[in-house]
Write a protein that binds this DNA or RNA. Structure first.
Lengths: 189, 189
DNA sequence: CATAAATTATACCAACCGGTCTATTAGAAT
DNA sequence: ATTCTAATAGACCGGTTGGTATAATTTATG
């Protein structure tokens, strides 16, 4: 039994990482248990509804990681362009070498959108929350409401697409291109 | 035994469809065999290296579907903006209702980029081929080489991201936004 | 028609899957 | 120290997985 009851958090963090790297069906409970060192009884103690419930917690964890990084950048930079550039620069620099990032939300969403409504919803809400943060920042910086809506969505889909292509192509160039094109879109709207 | 030897094609088409909808690990051989009606012996006859080999054939099939649609549009429209708009409009109209499209290449890539080099490579080559077609068209229409490179990649990643978000959010709005933003990028570059 | 090659068909296999269950251990409260 | 609750631990389960093997059937060829 671990020190002071953080087994649940360890499970969530481990699942979050593994699902980002190999997706929901590509990761078995055994993989999560082995990497986390938590016994199966604990997993079902904390997540009595099973793998799907753990996945939802993992998705929310992933969402929060991004929320925290973006929010910190928005607090640091008044200019959303600068904030997005920094975010993408950071991703670009570490995505290929890091074995912790993977494809946030995207793989799980692609696997389960038609087979698990609770998971699809968790992914959908994660995307929505990211967009809401982008939108709020854009509004605050003078973009009108329609523009903020569209650009928040565009940035979100571009980052997802860029991460996917960077991983697939083993190159950070897609993220670099996304950084430039997002900059162009935000400057010219 | 089916008429004139198209079992291999049927397997590929079925696998292509199922992998797009649920990913590589989300689809078992049994699912493919049941939907296609082809016996397992045939599967191993045509794909003696197993599931991975079938997946690569399926990825190439998916790639060709998109190549054919885009090429037809590029032949029909001199203006690449018009062609992309038509492509995205078509996707936007059918993506939510259709149970045939799914997420071309994206889900499989996200699941396997770190665990199967042959599959990652097949996905990478598919993306590259799509971009090459976009690039050729852009060059032909007067965009310079650097612009063509960046825009081809940007369009590719935006379409992937937009499809993913449309499926996850059960809304065609991401594809509509992608259509508009791609139009802006192509117009202003 | 006979033979060889191609294709089909299905039983079998070990390993893996998510989930259930129960006993044990640890922690919290008194 | 005792009692109760929380958490751990791991065996067990039926079903599924991708792959192997072999026989049967069909097709192609001369």
């Amino acid at each position: 039994m671990s020190a002071k009851n953080n087994s649940k958090d360890i499970l969530i963090e481990t699942a979050s990482r593994l699902f980002r790297i190999k997706g929901y069906y590509g990761v078995g409970l055994k993989d999560i248990l082995e990497e986390s060192g938590i016994p199966k009884g604990s997993l079902y103690h904390y997540f009595p509804q099973g793998k799907e419930q753990l996945a939802i917690a993992a998705i929310n964890h992933t969402k929060e990681i991004v929320v925290n990084e973006i929010q910190a950048l928005f607090d640091e930079f008044e200019d959303p362009i600068k904030a997005f550039q920094t975010h993408l620069q950071h991703l670009s620099e570490i995505i290929i070498k890091s074995d912790n990032i993977g494809f946030p939300i995207g793989t799980i969403a692609g696997e389960t959108y038609s087979t698990s409504e609770p998971i699809r919803m968790a992914c959908h809400l994660a995307f929505e929350e990211w967009q809401a943060i982008y939108r709020k920042k854009l509004l605050k910086c003078g973009y009108d409401k329609a523009q903020s809506n569209d650009l928040a969505l565009a940035v979100n889909l571009m980052i997802e697409g860029a991460i996917l292509l960077s991983l697939t192509n083993k190159s950070n160039r897609p993220l670099e291109v996304a950084k430039e094109q997002i900059t162009l879109l935000l400057r010219k709207d």
